[in-house]
Amino acid sequence: MMRTLAAFLILGLLSQSFGQTTATSSGASQQRLQQEMAGAASQFLGMLSVGQRQQATFAFDDAERFVWYFVPHERKGLPLKQMTPFQQLAALRLLKTGLSQRGYTKATGIMDLENVLRVIENRPPNDTYRDPENYYVAIFGDPASSQPWGWRFEGHHLATQFVVLTDANGKERVLAQTPTFFGSNPGVLRYDF
């Protein structure tokens, strides 16, 4: 019997329902979110080798912070496939700090769809074009300082970016969670039970 599994299809920017907070959230939740992000980013960076750290980090004012794609192309940052399993978990923990549980589940589901595309497109098992580990992490600035910093997690049909700034009262706030894009391909997956 043929059934249709409707995969989520979200084109364009997401609404706040996928993020944890915005700049208008309460000060306490903002501080907690900033601390979680800074802690996760610092832990991730602390697990990297010198070479990996150089690949994953950029100055906050680097032009790379303004580069944004959600289609397959050459990216900068450190890809999951060049990380150890523990480093990958740390990278995913960082991603999770910026999303609700629902948003995180959708993000990892989008990443898993690369395996489906590999089969649909008749690509070999060792194909690197359709690869769920072809998602990149980039850190802009130093999450351990009080200076502005941010991070990006990006790959095919998934692009998230966050910026943390210190406000006039000296409190760090997650100022922006844009640009953000979640999409899927295929939009409908048919299979037999």
Score class of each variant (00 low, 15 high):
Ala138Cys: 07
Trp68Lys: 13
Leu48Trp: 07
Asp131Ser: 11
Ser42His: 06
Asp62Thr: 12
Leu99Cys: 04
Gln35Pro: 07
Arg65Pro: 12
Gly141Ala: 09
Arg65Ile: 11
Ala41His: 06
Gln52Glu: 13
Gln55Val: 10
Met37Ile: 15
Gly51Glu: 15
Tyr135Arg: 02
Ser100Trp: 09
Val137His: 00
Tyr136His: 05
Gln43Phe: 01
Gln35Arg: 14
Ser42Cys: 05
Pro85Arg: 13
Leu117Phe: 02
Ala40Lys: 09
Phe60Glu: 12
Gly98Glu: 06
Glu64Gln: 13
Met47Tyr: 01
Arg75Asn: 02
Ala59Glu: 12
Gly141Tyr: 03
His73Gly: 01
Asp112Cys: 07
Gln43Lys: 11
Gly141Glu: 07
Pro72Thr: 04
Glu121Lys: 14
Val67Tyr: 08
Val71Ser: 09
Gln87Lys: 11
Phe44Lys: 03
Val119Ile: 14
Lys96Ala: 06
Lys106Pro: 02
Asn126Pro: 00
His73Pro: 00
Phe86Asn: 15
Gln55Tyr: 03
Gly39Val: 04
Thr105Ala: 15
Ala138Lys: 01
Gly77Ser: 08
Ala90Val: 06
Phe86Arg: 15
Val50Trp: 01
Ile110Asn: 01
Pro85Asp: 14
Phe140Lys: 04
Asp142Ile: 03
Met37Leu: 15
Leu99Gln: 02
Met111Arg: 03
Arg102Phe: 13
Gln52Ile: 10
Tyr104Phe: 14
Arg53Lys: 11
Met83Pro: 12
Ala40Arg: 08
Ser42Leu: 07
Ser100Phe: 09
Phe86Ser: 15
Ala63Glu: 15
Phe140Leu: 06
Lys81Gly: 14
Asp112Leu: 13
Pro85Gly: 13
Pro124Met: 04
Tyr136Asp: 00
Gly51Val: 05
Met37Val: 15
Ile110Tyr: 00
Leu95Trp: 00
Thr108Trp: 02
Gln82Ile: 08
Pro85Leu: 11
Lys76Phe: 11
Asp131Met: 09
Ile110Asp: 01
Asn134Ser: 11
Phe66Trp: 09
Gln88Lys: 15
Leu95Met: 11
Leu89Trp: 05
Pro72Asn: 09
Pro124Asp: 08
Pro125Cys: 02
Val67Arg: 12
Val116Cys: 05
Met47His: 04
Asn134Cys: 04
Arg123His: 00
Met83Thr: 13
Phe60Cys: 11
Asn122Pro: 00
Arg93Asn: 12
Ile110Lys: 01
Ala59Met: 10
Gln55Phe: 01
Ala38Gln: 02
Ala38His: 00
Gly103Trp: 02
Asn122Lys: 06
Asp131Tyr: 09
Glu36Thr: 15
Ile139Gln: 05
